[in-house]
Simulated scan of single mutants.
Amino acid sequence: MSPFSFTHILTQAVDELSESESYKGLFHQHTDGNPLPSAKALCDIIELARAIIFPGYFGNSTVNSRTMTYHIGVNVERLFDLLTEQILAGLCFGSDDESSCTGLQREEAASVAARFISRLPELRRVLATDVEAAYNGDPAAHSFGEVISCYPAIRAISNYRIAHELLILGVPLIPRIITEMAHSETGIDIHPGAAIGSHFTIDHGTGVVIGETCIIGNNVKLYQGVTLGAKSFPLDENGKPIKGIPRHPILEDNVIVYSNATILGRITVGKDATVGGNIWVTEDVPAGARIVQPKAKK
């Protein structure tokens, strides 16, 4: 059968897909000359940041103590250029009036990129504590290098910490893309809005979900399948969820949550508490408590 026999079907599909009502809310009106966020560029940014934070493990493997300043300098310069462009893309994308994406916004993007880079020493310090926590918490880990190179939690947590800093600096869209990249790669879903302390680790990691308004203290350990989620969504007068209100759990210092536990709502799991596997928690857990499944009655 000739392809031309299907012309009317294709034409009808084009007409239906071009109807404004069919793409309402799904269409991004791009302004010529404005940059668009690039997944490839953001991947390069993450790899550059990792190469700076963990020199020798990512990027150029020939780096040594004598050439450290040179390699970090080259990576920082490239990171600044790429990050400025992507922050600008985020600012333009998030603007109500995209035609206003001007030289002033480029200057703002460069300023934010520079401020982010100034935070890299602190990011390295905190991520070093996460590596230490993963190593100390896993008898199967033989070295820090193995943890940095192999553990999905370090990939996901490093993406999260980078994205969180950008979110704090007011960058729209880009932080969420960065954490979703790690989500796709590792199965660990950490919203960039969550606040997470030092010495944080996730054992195995697959299926972990950490919501936007979670607050997690220091020395917290989660196992695979843990959900730190919201119990319910308050609605506005139009029946739509109210955005931005605290709705996820608070985990204080030294909390351990075992596999497939689900902790929902704005509740507090107190310092030094342990939450066992495969249970739902919707009420506050006292400090030092040990919450486990009740034993089945015989």
Results as ranks from 00 to 15, higher is better:
F4L: 12
F4C: 08
H8L: 11
V14C: 06
E19L: 14
Q29S: 12
L36V: 12
L36T: 13
P37K: 07
A39C: 03
K40D: 08
E47V: 04
L48E: 00
Y57I: 01
N60Y: 09
T62M: 06
E77C: 11
R78Q: 15
D81L: 09
L83A: 03
L91M: 10
C92D: 00
G94L: 05
G94Y: 06
D96I: 05
S99I: 05
T102L: 02
A109G: 07
V112A: 01
I117V: 15
E122N: 05
V126A: 08
A128I: 01
D130T: 02
Y135A: 06
S143I: 05
F144T: 02
G145H: 04
E146H: 06
V147A: 07
S149L: 15
P152S: 11
I154L: 15
A156L: 09
S158M: 10
R161L: 08
R161S: 03
E165Q: 15
L167F: 12
L173T: 14
P175M: 03
T179R: 01
E180Q: 14
M181F: 11
T186A: 08
G187T: 10
D189V: 07
P192I: 01
P192V: 01
A194W: 00
A195W: 00
G197C: 07
S198W: 00
S198N: 13
H199M: 04
T201C: 15
I210V: 15
G211N: 00
C214V: 06
I216D: 01
V220D: 02
K221M: 15
Y223P: 03
G225R: 04
G225M: 08
V226I: 11
V226Q: 02
L228W: 06
P234T: 10
P234H: 10
E237V: 13
K240F: 10
G244F: 04
P249S: 11
I256P: 00
N260Y: 11
A261Y: 07
L264C: 08
G265Q: 09
K271W: 04
D272I: 03
V281H: 06
T282K: 14
T282N: 09
V285T: 08
A287Q: 12
G288K: 07
R290F: 10
P294Y: 03
A296I: 13
